[in-house]
Design a protein around this nucleic acid. Structure first.
Length: 530
RNA sequence: GCUCCCGUCGUCCAGCGGUCUAGGAUCCCACCCUUUCAAGGUGGUGACGCGGGUUCGAAUCCCGUCGGGAGUACCA
């Protein structure tokens, strides 16, 4: 977003967006990122972008790059986070968790020392079998892992250690009691600790899992508001528990120092607020997937949606300003956005509405601006076919610039220019068979084309003069104007659907227009019989 | 199964005990405009999941019920 962040840290909020880099950036994730940015900008805070790639088997470099590119395209640039060149920006990095492994290991070691964790030597297979038994109702009760039943005895611990059997590290959660967290969008949510499993915070290979890495970084980087998807709501209790542990006796601060990472700002505490966003679903209320059309941000770009439209639409997916306006620019969004006013129920992604917004936005653009935005869809950048050079020549740009006033008010998406442009950018026009069938077969079509060719041969080549000449034909031929316009339209543009005729002819130029009428005449004659 | 979350037009929102014969946007339909397609204008169809309470009065509060979703991983 265009508004620069305030530079003064102070008590200003710090928010983060921290995707796991596998696959493409999803529109649901983008909305979460957007809400983070809006809140940060609104309050002059900081937006941090962090890569959560602790699972080496899933994270890919390609995905990370594509997410950074997608975020940048949609206008959600970060104040702190990784850079495209592999470096990072901001004082509390690095911002890729794969580069912070030492910190997590150090924290895990100290947590274990403090007695906050215990070792679990069970294999994944053993755990799965145990869970299966629990679900089957074997020992009764749900599959909740608790130290009281899970912690190995001293003898077992010694034996496993001697056997060299690897162990994961589990966080000890309270056996009883409850925890209540206040959520900006949901109000108070309460859990019984007895229903919450002790999470694995370090895998048996020593690497950190999400519960540890995420909590450590949120505290280490001074995140004050955690705004994320509802799918992470259930993970909140153990994170709150961890925040307390990390801040006790300077555990995290010492760990940070021990591994040589930047110290926290002494003013920072634990994250002070949560905001769990409702899910974004498809129109069938099912999880968003490829069946619903596009879900990846890059796909929207390719289809000709404008980034500012996406920002506007996505902001409204779960939220609305007090006055009920819907078309909001970035300044409006920043001025009005309020996390506490976000709705609680899942929102369906409606491409039709997005498309309508996009069309309105296109109509707001200046003709110069629209020309610039259209070029990428014509030079092969956003399409398979290149109708102009990249960069476009002056002549090519002039043609597109001339086309803009003719198409601006009939476009919903930028990629639609690919339908209109060929007739104007190519020498030859391909006659659309359906249009030929519908228009050239009508009585009088060849005569209309011939007559148009005649009167246009030496008229002054302006829209007004072309119109006057063609408007005179119906009287002469004794037919309606549509009977003249449609055949000429098909002949000149190749299709029965085109931008306004007179303007189109002017843009094509006399030479091309006459040549096309000449070429179409025999086709129209041939179509008469059929 | 267990835990948590959610429930107003097809969809996104408004509504916070009376002003609701429930409002806006999008979609759909009709009409106007019109050289095609659009755009634009005007009008219209369309919703408080259900059942109990509380109250003079409930979309709004409470309980239940039904329905949907998320989590239940050494994924995040």
């Amino acid at each position: 977003m265009p508004i620069p962040p305030a530079s003064d840290p102070g008590a200003l909020p710090r928010l983060r967006f921290c995707p796991a880099p596998s696959g493409w950036l999803h529109v649901g994730s983008v909305r979460a990122a957007l809400y983070n940015v809006l809140h940060a900008r609104r309050h002059g805070g900081t937006f941090v972008f962090r890569i959560e790639d602790t699972d080496a088997s899933r994270a890919t470099e390609e995905s990370m790059r594509s997410m950074m590119e997608a975020l940048h395209w949609i206008g959600l640039d970060w104040d702190e986070g990784p850079e495209a060149d592999g470096g990072s920006r901001g004082p509390y990095g690095p911002y890729r968790q794969s580069l912070r492994g030492e910190l997590y290991a150090e924290v895990a070691r100290r947590l274990e020392e403090a007695g906050a964790t215990y070792r679990d030597h069970r294999t994944s297979e053993e755990l799965e079998a145990w869970r299966e038994r629990q679900r089957q109702g074997g020992d009764g009760g749900p599959p909740v892992v608790k130290a009281s039943t899970f912690e190995h005895s001293e003898e077992e611990l010694t034996r496993f250690a001697e056997e060299g059997r690897p162990a994961s590290l589990r966080l000890r959660t309270p056996e009883s009691g409850s925890i209540t967290v206040t959520d900006l969008v949901r109000g108070e949510v309460t859990w019984e600790w007895a229903t919450i499993s002790d999470p694995v915070i370090a895998r048996s290979d020593g690497s950190a899992t999400y519960p540890l890495a995420n909590s450590v970084d949120d505290v280490a980087q001074g995140i004050s508001i955690i705004c994320r998807g509802e799918d992470l709501l259930s993970v909140t209790p153990r994170q709150v528990l961890l925040y307390g542990l990390l801040l006790t006796d300077g555990l995290l601060d010492e760990a940070l120092a021990a591994v040589g990472l930047p110290a926290r700002d002494p003013a920072w505490g634990a994250p002070e607020a949560f905001a769990h966003l409702p899910m974004v679903v498809g129109m069938d209320r099912k999880k968003l997937s490829k069946r619903h059309g596009s879900v990846a941000v890059q796909e929207f770009r390719r289809q000709g949606f404008l980034p500012e439209t996406l920002r506007n639409y996505l902001a409204l997916l779960g939220w609305a300003p007090k006055d009920g306006r819907e078309r909001l620019n970035d300044d409006d969004l920043i001025a009005e956005f309020d996390l506490a006013a976000v709705g609680r129920s899942a929102a369906a992604f409606d491409v039709d509405k997005l498309t309508a917004f996009n069309g309105e936005r296109i109509r707001e653009l200046s003709e110069e601006e629209l020309t610039d935005r259209l070029l990428p869809y014509l030079d092969g950048t956003e399409g398979d076919e290149a109708l102009v050079d990249r960069p476009a020549t002056d002549e090519q740009r002039a043609v597109v610039r001339g086309l803009v006033p003719l198409v601006q008010e009939r476009m919903q998406r930028l990629d639609e220019v690919q339908r209109y442009a060929p007739a104007f950018l190519r020498d030859e026009v391909e006659l659309d068979p359906d249009s030929v069938d519908k228009v050239f077969t009508k009585n009088g079509a060849p005569e209309a084309i011939a007559a148009a060719r005649r009167v246009l041969a030496d008229v002054e080549w302006t829209t007004a003069a072309i119109e006057a000449a063609l408007r005179a034909l119906p009287d002469e031929l004794g037919i309606g104007f549509g009977k003249v316009a449609q055949p000429v339209r098909v002949a000149a543009t190749g299709s029965a659907v085109s931008p306004p005729l007179f303007e189109s002819l002017e843009l094509l130029g006399r030479e091309v227009s006459l040549a096309r009428l000449d070429a179409a005449l025999p086709v129209a004659r041939a179509a008469q019989g059929s």
